[in-house]
Design a protein around this nucleic acid. Sequence first.
DNA 1: CGGTCGGTTCGAAAATGCTCGAACGTTTGG
DNA 2: CCAAACGTTCGAGCATTTTCGAACCGACCG
Lengths: 109, 109
Amino acid sequence: MSNPSDLAHPDRDQIALPEVLFALSDPDRLAVARQLADGPLDMASCHATDPNLPKSTKSHLMKVLREAGVIRNEPNGRRRRLTLRRDDLDARFPGLLDAVLRDPDRLAE
Amino acid sequence: MSNPSDLAHPDRDQIALPEVLFALSDPDRLAVARQLADGPLDMASCHATDPNLPKSTKSHLMKVLREAGVIRNEPNGRRRRLTLRRDDLDARFPGLLDAVLRDPDRLAE
DNA sequence: CGGTCGGTTCGAAAATGCTCGAACGTTTGG
DNA sequence: CCAAACGTTCGAGCATTTTCGAACCGACCG
């Protein structure tokens, strides 16, 4: 059908910088974005967050990222496929993702 | 005196990405950072925010930016000199500031 | 079918953040 | 010295977020 997913996603030009920054300002959400930088992942396989985090909490986390336009969340069988919206973010805010996904403190020692 | 400012500022390697992103995720605070990109400014001359914003609110705004390490706030006579910590931020998160300070929707049409 | 797996939605409670007036320094000028 | 200009801090109320269990739902398997 016309709808690639049952969840609402902003389209590219609706993505707003403050919301993106807010979404990424949480360590857990940032970790998810970083993990997705290597390619799409099913939510069940996304171990970026605490494994004993309640599902509802994890789902809410993804909601914030999705509504900000950072990730895409589409049904995939009985799972959810998560994708970093790199093309859209790069087009809208060039350089932002590269800067943010770069490892934070890895080289500091 | 030994102290260049009476307010606490994190030093460069204390600056954390989530806090920076959070500080910049508010439109008012983002506007302040953008205005300071052109050079230091006295707080009284900083018209990036609503002019009839109460002083305490404006002060709190600056506090968030300062504690995140985004700006420096040092006494200057009976005023306050605000400075964007571009060197520190560029060193710590290369490309971030450039991406964030770029005009958001200017070219979108 | 009936059950399980993966995940969303809904409330409600706890935590965090924002706003703003009041009170308080400091610096400067008369 | 006294007062005004500029800002910070404090506290309280309000708003937004976060957290998590419970209920739900579609996809899949037996």
